[in-house]
Structures are given as C-alpha cells and as structure tokens.
C-alpha cells in the first residue's frame, strides 16, 4: 500500500490542464506567472545590454544597431504584450486585495484579456515595419 499523498502532491496530481476543465482564475494566475517570469528575465538581460555603455560609446550604439533586427523586434512586441497583460491583471489582483470586484473576477479577467489583445494590435502596427519592413 502506497503512503498517503501530501497535500502538495494531491494539488499537482489533481490538476487536469485540459482547457475546458480549467477555470478562468487558473488561466489568469498562470498567464500572470508566465508573463512575470518573462519580464524579470528580460529586465535582467536589458540591464546587461544597456551596461554595454561601460565598454565605450561605440559599443552601445553597435549593440543597439544589432538589436534592431526583426527577431528582436518580434521579441519586443511579445514583451510589450506581456507587460500589458501582467499590468492589467496585476491591477485586477490589487482590486481584489482591496475587496473590490471579487464577485466579478471572471469579467475582469476577460476585460484584461481583451484590452491586452487591443494593446497587442496597437503595438503590432508600430512594430510591423521593424519586423517585416
């Protein structure tokens, strides 16, 4: 007979990630976590890149010119989208902390999601020439 599972094991074992079985709050939490990790990783890399100024004036402009390549522009588009979602969902979480809107958490998630899509569309019009131009 196997030993009883801990609450931690149960929590992961019970997870069924089939999209229709997962509730909106889980997607909001998961997206918040993924975008948060992506943003902190970017911030640390961004600081290393910007610090190229310490190696001389020429190296900073050379690095910036290298980062104008389409792949990096596409990455920046995704980053901006991640920032928009993380910021909006973060405000949603702060509202809940203040006891506001908890009953409307699903509607607030979909609002944040739609605004993120709108933000992505707007950012796409700006980044398009840098990616495909």
């Amino acid at each position: 007979m196997s030993k009883p599972a801990t609450s931690r094991e149960l929590r992961y074992a019970d997870l069924d990630l089939w999209p229709t079985k997962v509730k909106v709050g889980f997607w909001a939490w998961l997206l918040h976590r993924i975008t948060g990790l992506a943003i902190i990783l970017y911030l640390l890399m961004h600081l290393v890149v910007i610090s190229s100024v310490l190696w001389g004036t020429g190296s900073f402009d050379a690095v910036m010119a290298f980062l104008k390549r389409p792949w990096f522009a596409a990455g920046e588009l995704l980053l901006v989208t991640a920032v928009i979602y993380h910021g909006l969902n973060g405000l949603r979480i702060i509202l809940f902390d203040l006891g506001v809107g908890v009953r409307h958490q699903k509607a607030l998630f979909w609002g944040a999601f739609l605004l993120t899509l709108a933000g992505f569309g707007w950012a796409l019009t700006i980044f398009w020439p840098h990616i495909f131009g």
Binding site: T57, M64, G87, F127
Partner: peptide, 23 residues
Amino acid sequence: LVLVLGTHLWVLHFAPEPAALTL
C-alpha cells in the same frame, strides 16, 4: 511600475516621435 514603465515604453516606442535609441 504602471506609471514609470508605462512612461518608459511610451517614450521609447509609442510616442508619435519615438526617442532615438542611440547613446
């Protein structure tokens, strides 16, 4: 961060005349 990151992104990417990314 909503304020300062919003400002940073606006100035560098979204303003009608985005800032130059040179030294």
